[in-house]
Amino acid sequence: MIILVQNIARFIILILVQVFVLNNIRFSGFINPYIYILFILLLPVRFPRWLSLIVGFIMGLIIDSFTNTPGVHAFATVLLAYFRNPVIKAFLSIEEGANPVPGFYTFGVSAFVKYVVSLVIVHHTAFYFLEIFSFENAGLTFVRLLMNSVVTILIIFGIQSVKSGKS
């Protein structure tokens, strides 16, 4: 129950922060970190997979609506939600019956870092290539997605390291 409320609150707060704060940064022209995916990343490990796909789709669509990029965020977020479980399986083994919320403490630092980095890169790659919708100037798109991934990852680690003390 607490986890449900926590997740709903996280859903709303992340969307608001994303739309009203982070989308207005435009630091050095093209830094625009996408933190809202933290919601999908922090769903409990055994959260039903089909539901995470749908939630990811809805969340992406909401962000899309605010940024006038119909479908782009939705696509990237559904992709992220789909790859979440295989990535978790690849980096660590969860015991039967356990249902941890991803974090530095539950996953261990190295597994959590790998988990976040790989999924953020999956999401950002899909997003930036779909946003441009061409492979022209792929080099520039690549630079953009790398820089933004670094910023997003750093912010996510920042948030998590502040939080991990209490949970």
């Binding site: 789709f57 992406g60 479908g71 782009v72 939705a74 696509f75 559904v78 779909l130």
Partner: peptide
């Protein structure tokens, strides 16, 4: 879902 999103993009 991916097809739906892609349809929206297109």
């Amino acid at each position: 879902l991916e097809l739906l999103s892609f349809g929206l993009i297109v």
